[in-house]
Amino acid sequence: MSGKKIVIIDDDPEICDAMSEILSEYDYQVFTALDTKSGYQLLLEQRPDLLILDIMMATMHEGLDFATKMKEREGVYGMPIMIVSARPPAEKGYGRTLEEDLDWIHADIFMEKPIEPEELIHNVKVLLKD
């Protein structure tokens, strides 16, 4: 039982629940937030080992903006970030593309929805070095 902490920020409560259930099965402690504001509180409280982040929430690129902020303060929040989104990385027309931002956001892993749960678990294990 690793008991490592994972914070999930996704505005879909059902996805949050499901991911939480699944990851709990692998003995992770999962905390969820429906927006980045409360997600930020969770980060401060829990100091998680991994952040799983959706992109499109209240704005088209709320997740990207949040990831940027976190990476800018890497020393403080040193956890890896996994971005999970239905947006393909190079999709244009939303003002920003993942592709151009990934260069400097350095999200550790990008997973395009729908994701295979097995793959999710595999990537989580890789990022947490389990």
Partner: peptide, 27 residues
């Protein structure tokens, strides 16, 4: 035409939920 991109996005989200659900059923 613009909608297609949006629809694809919606469908992907739905599939995502279904895959997670199916996995939970299996488990």
């Amino acid at each position: 035409g613009r909608a297609t991109a949006g629809i694809a996005h919606g469908v992907k989200n739905i599939l995502h939920g279904m895959k997670l659900g199916a996995f939970m059923v299996d488990k």
